[in-house]
Structure formats: C-alpha cells, structure tokens
Amino acid sequence: MTTTTPPTLAIPGQLLGPASRYQPGPGTHLHESNLHASLVGQVHITQPARALGPAKRLTKITPAPAPAELPTLSVTPATQLASAPSREKKKREVLPEVGNVVLCRVIRITPRQAVVAILVCGDTVLEAEWQGLIRVQDVRATEKDRVKIYESFRPGDVVRAEVISLGDQTNYYLSTTRNELGVISAVSEAGNTMVPVSWKELMDPKSGLMELRKVAQPQ
C-alpha cells in the first residue's frame, strides 16, 4: 500500500486507506478492499475502545478477525466557515434510526395510535419531516391493555420518544414506555402552557385544571 496516512480532507471517491488497516465509519465506503470517502469533509480516525477483552466472558462466537481492533475512519462534513456568523450551517441530514431518541409533535390521534411528526433526532434538527406512529401498546410499559391514547397524547403536544422500528413505508414506530419518555411540552385547552404534576397529569397554571397525559419524567 502506497498511502501511509489518510488525507485530512476528502471528497467523494477519494482513496483513504486499505481495509486491512481501517474500519469504515460514517461517510466512507468500501471498494475493492480499499476505503474511499463518500462525502466531502474532514477525515477523522477513531481509535478502538480498549479494555473490552478480558472482562467479558466469551459467551458468543465472534467473527474471526476481531474488527474492533482496527481504528475507524470517518468523514464528517465541514461546518461552514465564519462567513455567516448568525446562522450556523445546517447539519447534514440524518435519518432516524432504531434506538434514537427523537422529539416529535403529535399530529392526530386515533384510538389505536398517535401519529406524530418527527422534528429532532438526537441533537440534530431535521430539515425534512418524517412521520412516526406511537401505537397504543407502545405508550407505557405497565397496564398496557388499559392505555387510552386520548389520555396520553393530544394533537400539538411535543413528545420525546424512542425509535423502535423502521416501520412501514411511511411511518417510523416509536415508543414512550421508558420513564423519561413522553409528553414534554403541552398546551391546555385554554391555550396555556402546562406544567407536569405527576407521571400522568399536567396542570394549567392559570386555571388550575388538570389534563391527562403520558408525561415524561423531567431530566
């Protein structure tokens, strides 16, 4: 192999290094046992996390050449330079993935499910709107059969949820079973922002009226 160190900047197609020495990370792809960039940006090398070995019992058969020993190469798109100071360059678009915690707004509810628009995925504000579904069985972990959607969500609520499945062609399936997941911001029928009272109640501070929700535990 001719290249000893990968370049610092890369553009799509550029050779980064042999696959025998690096693992492909985000923004790269494999072609003929070499790593190539697939995005424009800066190249980062992440060393593998050590000290995994001895502490762990061998319960599973791992693939022969332990891939974790190789450093990971990734290409991250450059953030814009100081040309537009007030506005930060939008991050590269990401897709919601299974396991991600997302913020979403409830669009409509039916007895079976709540339809939501996913607005934020992890720390990234999404430019496009992806549709998600919180089914009645995914609202909370206990007493699943007594969950009523209209006692958990209302249209307009902002909900923190976890992606549990890629879902069908249009919807991601989301879940709010964990304690820290659920409604984080809601407006009462009178139009005031409500404060959480318990895990299933919110209160309108002006009128003192309670409304039912699956409330997220404040962090």
Binding site: P12, G13, G27, H29, H36, S38, G41
Partner: peptide, 11 residues
C-alpha cells in the same frame, strides 16, 4: 449532491 452531504461513490 456533495454539498447536500449525500453519500456518493465518486464525483
């Protein structure tokens, strides 16, 4: 496409 950050094998 490169500006949008969509993965491409080459330019």
């Amino acid at each position: 496409l490169a500006d949008a950050g969509i993965d491409c094998v080459d330019t």
